[in-house]
Amino acid sequence: MQSVGDSLDTWFKREVLPHEAALLRYLRRIWRQSDEIGDLRQEIYARLYEAARKSRPHSAKAFLFSTARHLLADRVRRGRIVSIEAVGTSDALDVMVDELSPERRLSAWQELRRVTYALNCLPPKCREVIWLRKVDELSTKQVALHLGISERTVEGQILKGMRLLSEAIFTRALSANNVASTRSIDTETENGKE
């Protein structure tokens, strides 16, 4: 069932994608063929999206990991891949199925830091092009003129930038824990007397 005003697409971006770093850690730990991780991620997302069309899960993260587990198990059954360790009751899974609580979501400032970090990870030319396009809001043509390169090159750099940025923002990125580091468990004690 889809709630009004919150499309499945929006839900997917807001509730599922933030767990990509954790998903990738999990996949890398139990899947030997590292060159297949990208395909696995996409298939898991597709399968999850299909299932969510019918019924939106309560916990996106738990659902993401159970989708991953089933998909990996299917692959093993079909005999396409044999080098898999501990599908099913992986201890790794247990620790990870806690939802992002509201305070662990990134604040706007932390998001900005993460994106800036992602930008700084880009190759120099690509970084320049993305800045001019995104921040100074120059058109592809204006960027090309400004940098003295062809429009085609600019487009190539944007394509590359789009993919690298998503990779840095969702995958490589510091986990919400790292960035947020809201150590908010304060023990408030009262000593002194009335």
């Binding site: 999206y49 900005l112 994106v115 995104k134 789009m162 998503s166 969702f170």
Partner: peptide, 17 residues
């Protein structure tokens, strides 16, 4: 669809710059 949504989300976030 999921590939597009993922890139779109990253691209939207980049606007924060």
């Amino acid at each position: 669809r999921v590939a597009f949504l993922r890139l779109e989300a990253g691209w939207e976030k980049t606007s924060r710059l």
